[in-house]
Design a binder for these strands. Sequence first.
DNA 1: ACTGTACATTTGTATCTACAAATATTGTTG
DNA 2: CAACAATATTTGTAGATACAAATGTACAGT
Lengths: 151, 151
Amino acid sequence: MKIEEALKSIHSMGITTKTVINIMYTSRIIEEEIVSVLKPYDLNIPQYNVLRILRGQNGQPANLSTLQERMVDRNSNTTRLVDKLIKKGWVNRSVCKSNRRKVEILITNKGLEILKELDPITDQNNEKILSNISKEELEALNTTLDTLRTF
Amino acid sequence: MKIEEALKSIHSMGITTKTVINIMYTSRIIEEEIVSVLKPYDLNIPQYNVLRILRGQNGQPANLSTLQERMVDRNSNTTRLVDKLIKKGWVNRSVCKSNRRKVEILITNKGLEILKELDPITDQNNEKILSNISKEELEALNTTLDTLRTF
DNA sequence: ACTGTACATTTGTATCTACAAATATTGTTG
DNA sequence: CAACAATATTTGTAGATACAAATGTACAGT
């Protein structure tokens, strides 16, 4: 469905406005899909992203600021987000010995396990989401988005 | 900046996951930009969208459900969103006479004025956001996103 | 007219987010 | 080393969001 049909009120808008809305709208649709996959695991998207970032550390701890740098959604309240993950036993947090202002956050085995369980499910979900666009379009889309962000 | 550099932890991910994240990440960046433009007007994105939808009605009132259909962010709490706009004097709301379950929402002159003031600013902002991608890429991007959503 | 069902919106509540201010630690400079 | 600035995180709080339940209205079948 073209964006004009999906959101009837944008008919009269210029191509730029339409495109900007199209990106945000498509993003929302994708997010809804991902949320519905994560929900049974009591995870929201930012929490899931943090877990994946921590796994990417390969045993090295991350401090809050590195976590924030690597998050999709940078403005979220990372301390409290990590609190939630600690409560679930998926990460732990300790004060950094070399610089007591910093904090060291590590994913636990339980956290790694939940990710391992989720991997095939989210991979499949992402493939479903992108199933109707070709490999070439995929590459072009990424290039366009990367270029876009240099504005 | 390529998405791999922007979010270092996605290096090891497959093209589909990477693309999905790229869309959400780019959308966030765009939203931040729009938010900063709307903020001085005490408007957030969903409120602004509702105002534009109401203007698109050309004098005809919209009821809540039509409003929701046409919103980018469908799950938001539209009653309370409209409450905010009423408080600011930009819309008014009345019970629909032919069907008292429904509600009729209309943009006020004051609401139209604020939109008119915002039009050039947001247009310019959207053009800035998309300034680095060509007309052809723009068209291709819209096509790809429209196709994507048919999954 | 009465009953049940569908529809349209509102409300309650828990959670999440944004933003600013507070706290705590480290580094720098006279 | 005292004073001040810089860094890193946490906390307070107001506002926004998601989801379910509640409210109020219309309609269809009997």
